[in-house]
Amino acid sequence: MAYAYLFKYIIIGDTGVGKSCLLLQFTDKRFQPVHDLTIGVEFGARMITIDGKQIKLQIWDTAGQESFRSITRSYYRGAAGALLVYDITRRDTFNHLTTWLEDARQHSNSNMVIMLIGNKSDLESRREVKKEEGEAFAREHGLIFMETSAKTASNVEEAFINTAKEIYEKIQEGVFDINNEANGIKIGPQHAATNSSLAGGQGGQQAGGGCC
């Protein structure tokens, strides 16, 4: 299907926090109650519309188990957005966030938009991490934050779409060089021509504004 842009996303976080479930909920509107361990990486894709433009999200759902850590590092390259997920019912998954963030910052491009996600918000009775703690962590590290539930689908759409909006804004601001695929953004085939002015203007601060 034709698209204006393609954004590469990566989902990271400890094993069992619900990364694959978030993806499945977002792409198929389904929930998988059994933990089917991800081996290396799985892929998903979905079209969304922002500002009247078709955007294809290409999502890399990485394995959270520690033995895959060195492998999943190579998946960061060229990602425009990252969903950093923890499980609000497991404090240790929250404690590991700094390690994940360091990993992400080290192996991705500096403009990558990172969305912090506290998943399993449906399990309020088993909550171990307060919402305020997630917010504080996000504020401190300059991330966007949301609590989601892959089970009830609460905030799942928003998590993926808000990240895309943020990336889109960065393109408008000219922060992203969309001609450099290492930034995780591809221009769709039929839009390439119309967007070339945008690409050309990436050096200037204002240039992006006018073209859309």
Binding site: V41, F68, I71, S74
Partner: peptide, 27 residues
């Protein structure tokens, strides 16, 4: 097998059929 997976992960594009086929085997 993990070494192998790491190796094929260096160049991976889900939209390239050939690479994906190879990756699935290793996976």
């Amino acid at each position: 097998a993990l070494l192998w997976m790491k190796d094929v992960s260096q160049e991976l594009d889900p939209d390239t059929h050939k690479q994906m086929e190879k990756f699935r085997k290793v996976q």
